[in-house]
Amino acid sequence: MLSVVARVVAMTIKELIQLRRDRLTFGMILGVPVMQLLIFGYAINADPKQLPTVLISQDRGQIERNIVGALERSGYFRIVAQVSGETEAERLVAEGAAAFVVTIPDRFTRDLLRGERPQLLIEADATDPAATSNAVAALSQLPRTALRHDLPGLVAEPGFEVVIHRRYNPEGLSAYNIVPGLLGVILTMTMVLMTSLAVTRETERGTMENLLAMPLNPAEVMAGKVLPYIVIGYIQVAVVLLAARFLFQVPMLGSLGLLTVALLAFLLANLAVGLTFSAIARNQLQAMQMTFFFFLPSILLSGFMFPFRGMPG
């Protein structure tokens, strides 16, 4: 029994010594939780509030102010612009500057006072349903809370109707957001990991020494390392796009040619990160840890896991 303890203690001491020697792993053990805490704590918010909202009001007055006030009080909406036309509003949503467009139609006050239950139109950018769903849910309270103070008893509750349009993704399918996002996740993960391991493997197995002794310069070694992964990257893209189209019924609306060109920049950036890691890492384990270190914040902050709108500006 005593010897079991002695052997376990011997192993434990050896592990601790090795851990201390491997500065990088040691740093990771301390650094990763701190990083996770900071990122999770500050940047990640599954219930994003203060979403940028554009107001189109064709009926200025007290009722408009009440509705805007109620929207802002809910905490989910922040009026960032007031525009006169729909084209302007559309542009702001398409650019991502606004997540909602609130339209108060002409004669809203009149219809309200007549008890005709006018419609308030709210258009939501539903590309990422998770980002806007809570805000949309909060809208159901709007007709009751908006007019409580100014027109108590004057209007039959609910005095107006909220019509919600989910732009870009009317059925609120999360696949529309997840599947294209996966393209980025898969590419980042494989490109960075594969290249960081590819070079480190040569160093670790001693084959790098041989490569350098042969008529081959470092740039040629790197080019030869990166080239196959560019091809693999494009194969992955093709697989994801085909799966998106035929398994998840995600339509491809943009230009395939533009995507192909833009992806090359994305692939090269990731491969460059991988090569950098492989130059710093002394073995494959370290390269893998660095990849993880890079991958974790990049995926957590990309808007793929948690809504981008919830992160601090």
């Binding site: 197995r205 001693g206 084959t207 790098m208 020494e209 041989n210 002794a213 042969m214 008529p215 310069n217």
Partner: peptide, 19 residues
């Protein structure tokens, strides 16, 4: 050095080919 690399054969201490 580059010209030497082309004309000299160097066998490393550790087996350095692809297993």
């Amino acid at each position: 050095a580059d010209a030497i690399k082309r004309q000299v054969g160097y066998m490393t201490q550790r087996f350095s080919f692809y297993e």
